[in-house]
Design a protein around this nucleic acid. Structure first.
Lengths: 255, 255
DNA sequence: AAATACAAATTTGTAATACAAATCTGATAT
DNA sequence: ATATCAGATTTGTATTACAAATTTGTATTT
């Protein structure tokens, strides 16, 4: 026998039942609104007690896959795809590494919507952005007032018209603020340096390119706007020597 | 009284307890590995039966927020942020609108990592990409063999070194394939037209820009590579007239 | 015959009890 | 001091019971 006994993750009956319920739903091609057999039937069919079945059902209910009303029984629903995500995106639950990855995720996503922004934006949208920029000028070192910062970026996401992107941004945005505050000491010198060199790109600059419908300009401006974060991410990687990065860095980076 | 009685979503005790458990964890600033009071204590403290408590705990267990081993009790864990997401990202569970939004999400993300790819890519990575491209040439109409297609894009994500991005891609990728198959009738004419006009951008083209470390070139190439999908997304929006889009289109789009 | 009122049955939500399995603790014996 | 064994603790599972809500069916009345 092995002498290591790490993380004896016992797979419980509830885990199995949960999985079987998902299979039940998908294999029968049930559609939203379809009824699901009542608890006693299900428990009997799966050969488990009602307690175990209900623990599994409770999970599906949390995800929004099913809903139940007394007497009417249970029905299949279309879940919000970020329902579970929402519950764990919390700096007090996630570790620093995950949070930093999320920050990188958000930045990539925001760079990626630049093109769609130019394609979709209306004059009304631009007027709104103008308003937001005027109401919340840069306070210090590329740090905007929190509300203005949020409004500006949120508005950009809104312009894509993609509900999944919008919702994701809403959930992840607070993480940006958290990382910013927690690692303030990293950001400040980076920002000072960028300011000295006149390399800071403000919301005003970004808006300028949007007004001109200048796709390439917007992409570049956005990338520069996130420069402090990117530098931070690079610093963090080399400093903490985190494993996931180390793996991909193992390979020779020449040239 | 109102005559509509839509979706009388009853908030159950389990819902409350779930929420209280999250609050318990965050308010006490518990860290990964910290013990959690045993079930009887918790049930008593929250004033509910052990059954209700366990239904709530079952949800946290599913998300990976807690783990429990017999006798040792329960401990706090760092959840995989996409644990819940993973369970519902399934074309048989999600509706078409959500799937199409997800496709748009993935494309935006992939456009957004272009810059990071050039910054991080090593010669070894390029050799691997070269291999993938050689092994799986375009079969027909910009449709690669499924495995090659997956390998190529996966490799690009891998280069970012961002675990959250990598995992997200792995979960969402199948959706691309699904949408592609389901709406094949939309894609084919679009592809034919692009091919006629010589506007198709292949993996080979993309790799070319990567080899030259040409950031701007890569971005443009990638955008063109996704052109069929973008046209599809535009068509879908105007055809289905989906509400979420309609809202953002309500505003006058002049110029 | 129709409409109203009332009773019964069904289904989920909650509680309580019981016991098995696993494993940590401590005591006892050598 | 070490080894062994019994007991206690904690989660996993099953069972029973009942409350609440709502649909369905029945009966009564006009």
């Amino acid at each position: 026998m092995s002498d290591l006994k790490i993380s004896e993750k016992t797979v419980t009956l509830v885990d199995h039942v949960e999985s079987k319920l998902f299979k039940f739903i998908t294999s029968r091609k049930l559609r939203v609104g379809d009824a699901i057999p009542n608890e006693n039937e299900l428990a009997e069919a799966l050969g488990v007690s009602r307690s175990v079945l209900r623990e599994a059902l409770s999970r599906l209910r949390m995800l929004g896959v099913i809903e139940s009303r007394t007497r009417r029984g249970m029905v299949l629903c279309e879940p919000n795809m970020f329902g579970g995500f929402q519950r764990v995106i919390n700096p007090l639950i996630l570790g620093d590494e995950s949070l930093i990855n999320l920050l990188g995720f958000r930045i990539a996503l925001e760079l990626g919507i630049c093109s769609a922004i130019i394609d979709n934006i209306t004059d009304d949208d631009i007027a709104e952005l103008d308003d937001i920029v005027k109401r919340g000028p840069a306070v210090d070192l590329n740090f905007y007032k929190a509300e203005s910062e949020y409004e500006f970026h949120s508005k950009l996401y809104e312009v894509t018209g993609n509900q999944s992107i919008i919702q994701f941004q809403e959930l992840v945005y607070p993480v940006t603020q958290f990382v910013h505050n927690k690692f303030r000491d990293y950001f400040e010198p980076i920002n000072r340096k960028l300011i000295r060199n006149g390399q800071i790109v403000t919301h005003d600059d970004i808006l300028h390119f949007i007004k001109n419908r200048d796709k390439e300009g917007l992409k570049t401006a956005m990338e520069r706007h996130f420069e402090p974060y990117n530098r931070f991410l690079t610093v963090k990687r080399t400093v903490t020597g985190d494993r996931s990065i180390a793996v991909s860095k193992k390979k020779t980076k020449t040239r």
